[in-house]
């Protein structure tokens, strides 16, 4: 084995390759794609849209850091995270199109729906703000989504279970990445700490919505297919507090321990059930995301590349 060329040495199997990774896997290999018995296809599709839109819009916001990140290394790291989430979105939107029987493809769903048809939580559509705010949002998102996917890996729907099992490993890294920056900035200089506190405070009003269950989620949770997001709050608080402790920060609503539940109804995070992103209620920030994300597909209908 020649080690003159690192690509040859890493590949090791003598294949002529332009890139040296091998052994790629299909997360849905061997997975039964028929919907589980007794589960409404419309509900399943709606649920896949919720989780898929979360990943799709979050991915787009992370992609916006390309060419704008503070360091080249961070830019690639953020793009990697965005691509992980885009991969989850593709699988979930494809599943949604299949489950509702409408025959829409993942691209149809991503690029040809209007904002009121998107089912993402509002956390993911908010503008990036500065780097600290983006890290606060990514931390909140990853902690929440990891807790969710961890439970969803046991879903009765084999596709959701497979997507979740793949996603757990990805989002665990996203959480680790964001936590690293929150600690570094929060426990850094006086200036970085101030920016980190502001970032966390800016994101915090969007947190409560993450734990408000939609009726579709509740129905599917009873059927063993979905996760009731209200069950995630305790883990979310525990993990977040651990990171914030290390960063010498506190939750913006953390008045006293043991009041987490009461704080959910506080004025800082008013997100009454039925008025959130899961019902298609979005801010103008989602319009901004979609106008960019969908511009090519809408300008050139049916184009392939």
């Amino acid at each position: 084995m020649s080690h003159d060329n690192p690509y040859e040495a890493l590949g090791g199997d003598g294949d002529a390759r332009w890139a040296f990774g091998t052994g790629f896997t299909d997360p849905l290999a061997g997975v039964d794609t028929t919907a589980p018995a007794g589960v409404d296809g419309g509900d399943l599709a709606a649920y896949c849209l919720m989780l898929g839109d979360d990943a799709l819009v979050m991915s787009h916001r992370l992609q916006e850091w390309c060419t704008r990140a503070p360091e080249l290394e961070e830019e690639v790291a953020l793009a990697n995270i965005a691509l992980d989430l885009l991969g989850q979105a593709r699988l979930l939107l494809a599943r949604a199109g299949q489950a509702d029987g409408g025959g829409r493809s993942e691209d149809d769903l991503a690029f040809l729906r209007d904002a009121p048809d998107f089912r993402n939580v509002r956390l993911v559509e908010a503008a990036n703000g500065d780097f600290a705010r983006s890290m606060a949002r990514l931390l909140v998102f990853a902690v929440w989504r990891l807790a969710l996917l961890d439970r969803l890996a046991g879903s009765r729907d084999p596709v959701l279970a497979a997507v979740a099992a793949k996603g757990v490993k990805e989002v665990a890294y996203h959480r680790d990445y964001a936590a690293g920056w929150v600690v570094r900035l929060g426990d850094g200089t006086a200036y970085s700490r101030e920016r980190m506190k502001e970032g966390l405070a800016a994101v915090w009003p969007l947190v409560a919505e993450l734990f408000v269950p939609h009726e579709v989620e509740l129905r599917l949770a009873r059927a063993g297919v979905a996760v009731d997001p209200s069950q995630l709050r305790a883990e979310f608080d525990a993990v977040l507090d651990q990171v914030l402790d290390a960063a010498r920060l506190t939750r913006p609503d953390a008045a006293r321990p043991g009041e987490a539940d009461a704080a959910q109804e506080g004025p800082a995070d008013a997100a009454p059930a039925g008025a959130g992103g899961r019902d298609g209620r979005h801010g103008t920030e989602l319009d901004e995301v979609l106008s960019v994300m969908q511009s090519v597909a809408r300008a050139l209908p049916g184009a392939t590349w």
Binding site: H3, P6, A9, L10, G12, D13, E73, A77, D176
Partner: peptide, 25 residues
């Protein structure tokens, strides 16, 4: 070190503020 490689091979360089971050980068 590649999946079938026996040893670590130099692949390039990067910038990082500390060792842990360098590993993640």
């Amino acid at each position: 070190r590649g999946k079938r490689g026996l040893n670590h091979v130099h692949v390039g360089s990067l910038r990082a503020p500390d060792d842990e971050t360098a590993l993640r980068h």
